[in-house]
Each structure stands twice: as C-alpha cells, then as structure tokens.
Amino acid sequence: MKHSDFYIDLEFLGPAGFRWRCTDVGTRTVVAIQLDDDDPNWYRGPPYVAKEVVFDEHEIERCHLTDEEAIRAAIHEADTSELPGYPNDFVNHMMRARFEEPGAPYPHKGVLRFDRCTPDGEILHPYASSKDGARWIVRLYLPFQRTSSDMPERDFIALPIATAADVRARPNGQSETRSAVTDQRNTHHP
C-alpha cells in the first residue's frame, strides 16, 4: 500500500498478516490498533484501550487491503527476489539466538529490522545481538556467502539500509567482500 491509501478507520492487513484499523495518519506514518479481540469495546476511541502502533514507510509498503493482495505480493516477492533463501538450520539458529539472549535484553530492536549493505556490496542480515563489555555487537547472516559474522553496533548502523538495487548489484567476488566484513567486525571503538 501507499501512504495516501490510508484514512482513519480503514481496516487492513499488516506485514505479518494480522488485521489492523487505522487510527491516525501522519505526514509519513500511520497509527493503527490491532484487531485481535472479539469485544468491540477494545476498539472504541480515541483514546483507545488497545495499544496504538506506528507504521513507518517501510511497513506501509508491506500492508494490504485483502488476503488475496497479501498472497499475490508474497508470491511476487518469492518469484522476483534475487536474495538467496535462508537454510532451515540457520533460520532455527537465528530464532534461537534472538529469543535466548543471555543477560540484559537488547535495547535497540529497531537495529535488527533492516538488512544493511557494506561499501563493497555485501548484504548483511542482522538477526540478534550480544554484549561485549560496554558495547553491543550485532550478529549477522551473510545470505550470499551462507555464513555468519558479527559487527559492532556502531559500525553496523553507520551502513546504509540495503535496497533491492543493492541485492541486484551485489558483486560475485566473495573473497574481497568477506575481508571487508571481517575488517569492520574487528574495528574497536572506545
């Protein structure tokens, strides 16, 4: 969907397939409540008893009006994406790492929302975090290399968010790319 498609009281499907109702439209975001209860009293407002959630421009693009539109979009994405799939064993590893983090929970969950692109074109998929002394380390999966790595959070968030064009333009020379990620990972900041 586009930002201009939204209006107050519009019902739509969010990126994970749950049904939502728009409660406000901002200049680049929309706010909505999830329709997950049979009792209509949860949805009276404003103010609402149900928690209002902000959808940014990236999430808005992944919203749909109907189940059919969502299914068509998922099929199109699977048919046209040049990003390699994720092996089942590593998906299992990523989910366990994210939900079984030892110690304090990671306070910057937004860092894990977007793949990033290194200057030499490698795509980095963040899946979890760990603490190294006073700094956070982002745990990464490199889908084209089918390997994992890590990088200081500070270095990771400085990289641009990966786009479909970055995926298409990714170079085939993997040895150069691997050394660039390793160099960034080993960079220490005070």
Rank of each mutant, 00 (worst) to 15 (best):
T66K: 11
P47D: 14
L142Y: 03
A104P: 12
V138Y: 00
I60R: 04
H3F: 11
V30K: 02
H76W: 10
G103R: 01
T27C: 11
R139L: 10
M95D: 04
E77N: 13
I161N: 10
T66W: 07
G173P: 02
R135Y: 10
E82T: 06
L112R: 01
H3T: 06
E153Y: 00
A104C: 03
A50Y: 01
S130I: 06
Y141A: 08
M151S: 10
T66S: 15
P119F: 12
R28K: 02
E69P: 01
Q145W: 05
T80V: 09
Q174L: 02
I33T: 14
V111N: 12
H125K: 03
M94V: 00
I71R: 08
R139E: 10
T177H: 12
I33E: 09
H188C: 07
A162L: 08
Q34S: 03
A78H: 04
D115F: 05
E57R: 15
I123C: 04
I60P: 00
F156V: 03
E69Y: 05
A169Q: 07
P102R: 07
I71D: 15
P15Y: 13
D132Y: 13
R170K: 09
F90Q: 09
H76R: 14
E100C: 10
L140F: 07
R96D: 13
S81T: 15
S4F: 02
A165M: 09
P87G: 03
E153Q: 14
P107L: 13
E101T: 12
R113E: 10
A128D: 10
P171C: 10
P87C: 03
A32I: 06
T118Q: 03
W42N: 14
D150L: 07
H108Y: 15
V49T: 14
E122H: 00
A180I: 01
A97G: 15
I33D: 01
D166W: 08
T187K: 14
V49L: 14
Q184H: 11
G17S: 12
T163W: 11
P160H: 02
F114H: 15
C22D: 03
A16D: 15
V30N: 02
H3L: 15
M95S: 09
D38N: 15
R154I: 12
E11A: 13
P152R: 06
I161K: 12
Y127M: 05
A164M: 01
E11L: 14
G26Q: 10
S4M: 08
V91E: 04
D67C: 00
D9F: 00
F18I: 02
E153I: 10
R178Q: 05
P46V: 06
T147W: 07
F18R: 11
D115Q: 04
S148P: 00
T29Y: 08
E122Q: 03
V181N: 08
P119S: 11
D132L: 14
E68R: 02
W20C: 02
V167C: 01
T23W: 03
E69V: 05
R154D: 08
K109L: 11
D5I: 01
G103Q: 05
D24I: 08
M94Y: 11
E176A: 05
E101Q: 15
I60F: 04
T147Q: 13
V138L: 04
F18V: 04
C117N: 09
